[in-house]
Design a binder for these strands. Structure first.
Lengths: 166, 166
DNA sequence: GAGTTTGACTTGACGGTTCAAGTGAATCAG
DNA sequence: CTGATTCACTTGAACCGTCAAGTCAAACTC
């Protein structure tokens, strides 16, 4: 789908012009991946633990941070979400008793988010099912070499996304 | 981050247990990709054309379909969205004058969605900027071979997502 | 061929995300 | 040392996606 050949004499126009058929096919596969993979991960976590992927990731990052605590801004970049979104998200975690927030005593502009014991338990309870799915879809589905390269390519694209130019 | 070694004697627990450090790193890179790439694509389309990626994709699929028309259910699977979501989405496109809906005259259970001329113009206007970004982030950023393999891996994962088991 | 079932959507309410504006703490400028 | 600015969030409204329930048309079922 979305096959396009020659830019200049544009006789065949549809969606993604000016990509070769092969490039287009690869791109559309990636689009399907970035659409469905989050959906699949979310669905499992939602069903089994009533958590979104972002909530899980945020709790996981907190869990391994020193003192299970991180600044909101740091946590936001680690989880690739906006500060606003994180603020709402942590407020929800807080209301569920999984996390806690307090202004940094040293510099009052910072807010430190910490994972509470109940949050840690929730995470430990959710982890096996989540990991099993990741294993099923990714780790056991690709050779070690291809998984490694996939990670590299992903990282390369992400770096370009938040590189200055553009 | 999220380094975990040995499952049995679980001394180090955080997020993703029972993945080797390498597997975890690859997975986290992919998580960043599936989080930020949609965001980047959406941001460009939103800014330059006031369209979401899903809206763009749906219009693109319609544009290259025969008679610029597709059944809702077919369009839903082509764009990887639920029928419900597509219904809302097409209703919005309809209200903007980009698309049109009508029950299939042959079998009234189907609804055919069609792209209107204004939608086609909108798409043609949005395409160059969108394609340029895809080129910048993906096509020009990876070798042809790696792009091809990335597409293959993506497809393999997607297939496992909607494979019966699990 | 009336009643049930199935298929293909549509709708509305709810909840999460985004965006713009606001708050309050530190820092800088004179 | 005071007023403006910058930082690091927080808030609220608008918008979008999801989920459950509803609609309406065809296809069985007896």
């Amino acid at each position: 789908m979305t096959t396009l050949k020659d830019p200049p004499q544009a006789a065949d126009d549809h969606a993604d012009l000016w990509l070769t058929p092969g490039e287009l096919a690869s791109w559309l596969s990636v689009v399907r991946l970035i659409t469905r993979l989050p959906w699949a991960i979310d669905a499992q976590l939602q069903r089994d633990a009533d958590l979104s992927m972002t909530e899980y990731m945020a709790m996981a990052m907190l869990a391994e941070a020193p003192d299970r605590t991180l600044r909101m801004s740091r946590l936001a970049e680690m989880t690739s979400v906006s500060l606003s979104r994180l603020s709402h998200l942590v407020k929800r975690l807080e209301s569920r008793g999984y996390a806690r927030r307090e202004p940094d005593p040293v510099d009052g502009r910072f807010t430190n988010a910490g994972l509470l014991p109940a949050g840690m338990r929730k995470l430990e309870e959710a982890a096996p099912g989540h990991v099993a799915l990741v294993r099923h879809l990714m780790v056991d589905n690709l050779s070690a070499e291809r998984l490694r390269r996939l990670g590299q390519d992903a990282e390369r694209i992400v770096q370009r996304i938040d590189s200055p130019a553009r």
